[in-house]
Design a protein around this nucleic acid. Structure first.
Lengths: 146, 146
DNA sequence: TATTGTTATACTCTATAACTATA
DNA sequence: TATAGTTATAGAGTATAACAATA
C-alpha cells in the first residue's frame, strides 16, 4: 500500500485551520475591529506609514476596498491620510495614538480570552501549539498565489 | 526579572493565528464560499440534517444571520429546507448532492494550494505543524465564551 | 407564554467598473 | 499614456428589533 507524499496531508491541515478560524471569529468582541482592519493597523504600527495601494497589496484586498477601509478607520480616528510631498497622487496612511491604543486594548482582551481557552488544554497540547508557532509564522509569511 | 505565567504566551499565539487567518483569506478562491458558509456545509455533511437555530448556535452567529445564510445556500442549490413532521415550527436544513460536490471541489483546490505553500517550508516546520494539529483541533473545539 | 423562524433595517466588507488627478 | 486613488454600485455577511406561526 503506497504512502502518498505531500498532498494528503494538506486536507487535515486546511480543515484544522478553518476550525481555528471559527474560534477566532467567535472570539471576536462584538463591536471590535474586523480582522482585516486589525491586520492593517498592526502593519502600520510595526512598519510605519504606508501608501494606500501598498496596503491593499499587502492585505490582499483591492484598492477600492482599502480606500474604504482607510476611510472607515479615519472616520473612527484610528488613522490619518497624509500627502506625499514627492508625488501628489500618493496617499500615505498613518496610525494615530488612538489607533495604537485600540490595538493595545484589543491585544489584551484577546490574550485574556485565549489564555482562558488554553487553560482548558493539557500541558502537552499547549507545548505542541507553542512549538508550531514559528513554523506557522513562516507559513503565513510565504507569498500567497496572487 | 520575573517570568510571568500563562498570560504573556497568549499574545504571540493570538498574533500568529491572525496571520494564519490572513493566509486563509488570501488563499480563498474569488467566487468561493465564505468561511462561515463552508463551515456550515461541512457540519451538515459530517453530522447530518440540523435545525436552523442549532446551526446558528454551532457557528456562533445569530438566528437571523443563519436564516439568511441558509437562504443564500438554498438559492444556490447547496442545501434545502425541510419541515419537521414532529414540530411545525422547526426548519431542518439538509445538504444537497450539489452541496457535497462543492465541498469536495473546494477541498481539493485548497489542499493543492496549501500543499504548494507547505513545499516552501522545511521538513522540520512541516512536522511541527502536523504535530500541533490535534492540539489545535482541541483548542478550536473548546466552547468559546458565549 | 415560550420557542422557532422570518422580515425589516442598517452597517461593514468586499468586488468590478467608471471616473479624476497627477506624473 | 500610465499610475494613484476615489466614487458608484452591487452583493455577502452580520447585527438588533419587531413580527408571525406553532407549541
Amino acid at each position: 500500500m503506497p504512502v502518498r507524499s505531500a498532498e494528503p496531508k494538506a486536507v487535515p491541515i486546511a480543515e484544522t485551520f478553518e476550525r481555528v478560524f471559527g474560534l477566532l471569529r467567535r472570539a471576536l468582541p462584538p463591536d471590535d475591529l474586523s480582522l482585516t482592519a486589525a491586520s492593517t493597523l498592526h502593519r502600520l504600527e510595526q512598519h510605519g506609514d504606508r501608501r494606500l495601494t501598498e496596503l491593499a497589496g499587502l492585505e490582499g484586498v483591492t484598492q477600492p476596498a482599502m480606500t474604504q477601509l482607510v476611510s472607515r478607520l479615519e472616520r473612527s480616528g484610528l488613522v490619518v491620510r497624509r500627502a506625499d510631498p514627492l508625488d501628489g497622487r500618493v496617499v500615505l496612511v498613518q496610525i494615530t495614538p488612538d489607533g495604537l491604543g485600540v490595538l493595545r486594548r484589543r491585544r489584551a482582551i484577546r490574550a485574556a480570552r485565549l489564555t482562558s481557552l488554553l487553560a482548558g488544554l493539557s500541558e502537552a497540547d499547549r507545548s505542541a501549539i507553542t512549538a508550531a508557532l514559528p513554523a506557522l509564522d513562516r507559513l503565513a509569511g510565504l507569498a500567497p498565489p496572487p
